[in-house]
Design a protein around this nucleic acid. Structure first.
Lengths: 342, 342
DNA sequence: GCCGCGGGGGCCATCGATGCCATACTTGCG
DNA sequence: CGCAAGTATGGCATCGATGGCCCCCGCGGC
């Protein structure tokens, strides 16, 4: 006999409702009613059944119940990049909070930015009969989802727009945000402005690049052109890239970094510089206030919440054309973006 | 007929295997064999069945399969505090990565540091027949889990030790870490050292407080005593607490903050101070290098990985007494902890 | 020509709970 | 007192797939 209070040991077969019913001396059906607290069960009977269940350590089998009730689970899937990235975890947190209000649970999986894995995960979630699927897609085309949508599993795209399929989406105003960052730097008198961006083939980055360029074009500025750096994918490379930029004969006087990882790298490169260039980063981050870093901020948690809301509406039967929610951005001036031209 | 590529619309009943079989002109069982790629299916038959399935947009029903196969899902639950906290998200990320290698999926839920909700979530996960349950417990006692463990659902406690029940656990060397932080400050010549801690009733905080006090005691220092502040639960209050400390007639010359949120608050309070006190924080964080903040670091991702590993071993049939894995800590000197006594 | 063998495929019970319907016993009330 | 309405309970089919078992057929050996 194992020690009391031990949470290990050989897997004992879980008791079934039939056994509980037998122990309580009632039928299967009555036991079911008692445990589900349905009406029309005598108080005494109910107590007897629940006592028996406790005694056996019985728990209703959610799998069987779901099967019977029509494969309608309470699971909602989220497929995203690395959850360790604070951006994704903020989104996930917003989603989770919203879903819980509706009694739904979040199942997460990382796609590692690999579209093959992503597709595999989609399959797995669908087999598991999730009620909805939220995706920060890595794949470039999503037509393979088309059949699904029509079969009642709503999809919501988060942060990146669907391509080749009509679906709900929650996006950041990337273009507008980048544009206002660029305007902000131009307003400070900067002309030689560097742009450090991540993979240009991903939609959000492309839009930020476009927004930046639109601002420059509108201002008749072409001096930024030698300082464009794209496909910088991590903080380390961002740091090196910024160092290289500053080592140029005519270094840029301002830098715009197109996501939080790149901003981190830039901050490392600028650390200990006596006269650092101006810096504005896309995405707000913890301690940006302490560091005095100006950013283009947006509410990632709200993005998650909106995505969950759209999904919930579909789950609840809403039909209609695909909707897109755009999360607005705002420039927060904290000092780094307001440094003078030198 | 709805537009091609639309992912919305009325929920159409999903096709069943029976329908696929009918379309392919074979029996239910044969269709099952074909889709599961079992042996003894003629190549031609297999192809016909798979074509039929594609045509109908059919997906195997994982719920039904799990029921039949014995309620053995591939889900592992994680119940923790707010996923938006980078500490928890790092843990979750480590767990997820490890689980995926074994074909398991992570389901997360926040307990909001509410033990009632936590218990409810445990119930929900168990009904869903998760293979294992990882918990960063908020509840103070966990005896209610005892029955479960003996029924084959392994529990792993993360970051906080089990109480009233024997179970696997992965913990940080809180006491040792706090002690080395305190030693570090003492070594710098500090005597009036403030300790800002979170809820003292939670084990990790209590251990950090104890470790700190042990170090002081060993050094024969009692001057720290007026500067003990516990039950500081968020960054805002930490900021206020640190301001108050520095406004004392004899302010402390060094501060030890007992978790990442409190360190954040302290940094805000110290910002713009001409001669800030020395600061060491428990938990490493992003950009601590740029800020020059000395910390007691540990590997939260490794903690998740270890927790997942322990769970997986139990799932795979390992039996034996409860094990505890301790994650070591190390002081990383970045400047803030090495400031001189003033 | 008969038998054994193995590949291909079908039938039926089963996993564990719930929905629907039937039944027995109580009440309430004209 | 009789009947309708209501309460407490039980029986049985069912959700969708899979496991076990059996059958049929073609082929090769003796």
């Amino acid at each position: 006999m194992s020690a009391p209070g031990s949470t290990h040991g050989a897997a004992v077969r879980r008791p079934t409702l039939t056994q509980v019913a037998a122990l309580a001396g009632v039928s299967l059906k009555t036991a079911s009613r008692a445990l589900n607290r349905e009406p029309n069960v005598a108080p005494d009977t109910g107590r007897r059944v629940r006592d028996a269940a406790d005694l056996l350590g019985y728990r209703l089998n959610g799998i069987a119940r779901e099967l019977r009730r029509g494969a309608t689970s309470t699971l909602v899937g989220l497929i995203s990049g690395d959850l360790a990235n604070p951006f994704y975890s903020a989104v996930a947190s917003g989603i989770e909070r919203e879903l819980r209000q509706h009694g739904l649970q979040l199942v997460t999986a990382n796609n590692d930015e690999d579209s093959g894995l992503e597709r595999h995960l989609v399959e797995a979630f669908l087999e598991r009969r999730v009620r909805a699927l939220l995706v920060v897609p890595s794949a470039d085309r999503h037509d393979y989802l088309a059949v699904e949508g029509n079969r009642g599993v709503p999809f919501v795209f988060v942060d990146r727009p669907p391509n080749g399929v009509a679906a709900d989406a929650v996006l950041i105003d990337n273009s507008g945000g980048a544009r206002s960052a660029a305007d902000h730097l131009l307003g400070g008198g900067h002309r030689r402005i560097a742009l450090v961006a991540d993979l240009a083939r991903k939609a959000p980055q492309r839009e930020r690049i476009d927004g930046f360029m639109a601002s420059m074009r509108a201002a008749g500025n072409t001096e930024w052109e030698p300082y464009l750096r794209t496909d910088v994918h991590d903080a380390r490379r961002a740091e090196a890239t910024v160092r290289d930029l500053l080592a140029l004969p005519d270094p840029p006087t301002a830098i715009f970094t197109a996501n939080n990882r790149l901003t981190t790298g830039a901050l490392r490169a600028l650390r200990d510089r006596p006269e650092p260039p101006a810096l504005v980063g896309f995405d707000d981050f913890d301690l940006a206030d302490v560091l005095g870093t100006s950013v283009v901020a947006h509410d990632a948690t709200a993005m998650g919440r909106e995505a969950a809301r759209l999904a919930y509406e579909r789950i609840s039967g809403h039909t209609g054309p695909a909707r897109t929610v755009v999360i607005s951005t705002s420039v927060i001036a904290r000092g780094s973006g307001e440094r003078p031209v030198r």
